[in-house]
Amino acid sequence: MALPPGDLIAAEPPAAEEIQAVPVRHYGRWVATVVVAAIAVSIVHSMASNPNFQWGVVRHYLFDSRITAGVVVTIELAVAAQALGIALGILLAVMRLSPNPLISGSSWLYIWFFRGTPVLVQLLFWSFIGALYRTISLGIPFGPSFIHLNSNSLITGFMTVLLGLGLNEGAYMSEIVRAGIISVDDGQTEAALSLGMTRLQTMRRIVLPQAMRVIIPPTGNEAISMLKTTSLALVVAFTELTTAAVNIYSNNFETIPLLIVVSIWYLAITSVLYVGQYYIERHYARGSSRELPPTPLQRVRRGVFSARHDPVAMGAVADVARPHA
């Protein structure tokens, strides 16, 4: 039977008012919430009530001058080594993508060596560099040299750790940078070249800024990892945060509280890095999505302003508050 044409379009909308449906009850989630909360409370309770944690000692050493000095050294080391790693990584990645086989090959060799040996072993090597080369001189290879330096005075404890961690990091960063570069569409390079830009301009202005979106998250990973890897300085007897704590507890045997102190500091610095990464990611996300969500700061500011200056918004809020008034 053929329908009369009018039947295809409902004559009257069945319900014009807003839908107020009863939400699905998630009983499983309630159970899970109770279980998780119970576990959390018992953990916190045991940590607070177990006297072996010695929270008093933790509080005493948290801002001890040796510890805070260690924090400063750790930050300096991590920043310098990560910066060295990023600079080397960009250089190695660009070399790796070079059409010249000698250049790309030497980059490959570097990466192969530094990723293939433990960073702990590399650190120890740098600390014994004085045994391998007594003096280090700058000059023309196989020709005259201009500057002579004693290895042991040039490669200080800081330099040992910086070189050990930075050169190793360069190998890992180069793979991250290379992944970023090859993630950018070839059409971008073609468009830039067709406009008369040189290869270097194309890389710097067009390819790298877009590659950053892929490069930043794993680099944040690397930076956080670097922060904690500086604790390997312990094996070359260079004093940063962890070594400072170890030095203290090997005298007073307050091992657990000092390890807690160290953990609190690493967690605090890592949290700061999270914030940094969030804003750097936003910067390089320009043009990628139609509108970026507001930052926490913008959200607070907008909330304050709309409440104060926007009577319509206030009215709307008031209406929602009393739906049946």
């Binding site: 569409d185 059409g187 971008q188 468009a191 067709s194 067009i206 877009q210 320009r286 043009g287 990628s288």
Partner: peptide, 12 residues
């Protein structure tokens, strides 16, 4: 000047 099928504008 060159104009491409897929535009190739710089998205950033």
């Amino acid at each position: 000047g060159m104009v491409f099928q897929r535009f190739n504008l710089f998205p950033h």
